[in-house]
Design a protein around this nucleic acid. Structure first.
Lengths: 258, 258
DNA sequence: TTCCACCGTTGATCTGCGTCAAGGAAGCTT
DNA sequence: AAGCTTCCTTGACGCAGATCAACGGTGGAA
């Protein structure tokens, strides 16, 4: 793993103690690997690393080589991207806090992992992780469930990539971000739903299989049509979430929790 | 689960005993769930079902409702597809022998499961499966590995859907089928690689996020350019596999095993 | 045999999105 | 302040692939 060398992280006090952001003592949220906070094997393996959002041409944190570890996002956002020789790029994973990357059992990464924001990850070396999996069955089960969730998300994503129009893709992404955002900390402004976009237009384009120009145009169009309101460039207001879902072409039932 | 009722399967002798197709005694291949053929819990739960390839408008074997089971393909091919209200369809999974569907822990299917060919599946009810998972750690681990493999495949697929041209998509699909085909039983005719397409043009289109017309045109183009030869409509000869990979835009190293 | 359903091919035309290009706004460093 | 970089927006144009349409081949049923 590439060392996050020379970083002198200027973080808020909450971010300084990511251990306590999640479930009090355990570096990994309940939703993540650890199902019991008092799991000593897990906390003993704890190994936090900082990564800065990359400036200029976003180089990767890890490229497509050895990946003999498992890592869980504590704070920040990481992206998984695949790149073709000629530079075409497709995002294939978006890791929010409590999501994980890595392959117990296999060793080669098939994608780049990049810090989309400043990022704190909790890393486990492969060997001890595997031993722990073998001796602690509930960890393997939890991991299986999370992986199946990821797979379901990937399949939704495939429908988006293969069959949705640009406008539907944008609306879908906004709905996804809004929903995940809301599941953590719901924020409403004057009865409307407030969402901020953690991604640049280019990153959205890579997520959606579009160009950044098309992303920009469609966001403008949604704004023009009153589906969303822009508050600056990276923050949107959603006056009517159901309308947004409609634009997304989602049969996916379910609004915002809370 | 929908019963495959009223089927009087007219199958070859090999297909009549799918138990013995895979690893002699166990209905599930080594690659699949069962890591030890003598696992009595597994074989005791064994529950084989036949499904016919659906004629006319392909209805689904299971639609997006309860899915309180886990099932593994023994012989044949199953597809997972998602459909939007207006009928747009995207394939999100292609299950060959030893692949599985199902959600230990969760209950709702997010996609249709369809028999693309006549199909034999080995089904486990959720409850006993979960109990077994809890008591037999190597099953959970094996399942996790398989799920991670699926996830990797899904991510390759996302690159294909989001960024590849129609020609590259077709070449990629042919390469994928050839590779999976070869990993089971390699067949070569006069030094060339012989692959038969288990999917209709429409199913390929759903796989690739294209229309069936475009699929047909691009296959014709690849044939015209000598990348492939057609032997009938559902069987192709690949004179040069590396050439095919090149057309696919794959940096994905690795030719045909064997 | 005829009829019909399904599957595949090919042509003509249309259009959504990519491509190329120019420029504006915000945040830096010097 | 000026000047840089990064991020975003908007316009003009072209093309890959969708859409609409016609037709051929094959296999099963009557």
């Amino acid at each position: 793993m590439a060392e996050a060398s020379g970083l002198s992280p200027a973080l808020s006090s909450a971010e300084k103690n990511p251990l306590h952001l999640q479930c009090g003592e355990c570096p990994i949220r309940h939703r993540a690997v650890c199902a019991r906070c008092d799991n000593e094997e897990l906390t003993a393996l704890e190994n936090l690393k900082y990564y800065r959002r990359f400036e200029a041409g976003q180089p990767v944190v890890w490229s497509g080589d050895r990946m003999d570890f498992v890592a869980s996002v504590v704070t920040g956002i990481a992206t998984l991207t695949q790149t073709m020789e000629d530079g075409r790029r497709q995002m294939v994973g978006l890791l929010l806090p409590s999501d994980f990357v890595g392959r117990p059992g296999r060793m080669i990464a098939g994608y780049d992992v990049t810090a989309a924001t400043d990022l704190v990850m909790c890393c486990f070396r492969r060997k001890p992780f595997e031993e722990m999996m073998a001796t602690t069955p509930h960890v393997a089960q939890r991991l299986l469930e999370m992986t199946l969730d990821e797979l379901d998300a990937a399949r939704e994503w495939m429908l988006l990539l293969g069959r949705k129009t640009a406008r539907e893709k944008i609306a879908s992404l906004l709905a996804i971000i809004a929903r995940r955002d809301a599941s953590l900390n719901l924020r409403r402004a004057s009865g409307k739903l407030m969402v901020d976009l953690p991604l640049t237009r280019e990153e959205m384009a890579d997520y959606l299989g579009l160009t950044l120009e098309t992303v920009s145009r469609q966001i403008s169009a949604l704004k023009r049509d009153g589906v969303i309101l822009l508050e600056g460039k990276r923050q949107i207001l959603v006056p009517d979430f159901d309308r947004l879902l409609e634009e997304a072409g989602d049969d996916c039932d379910g609004g915002i929790p809370g």
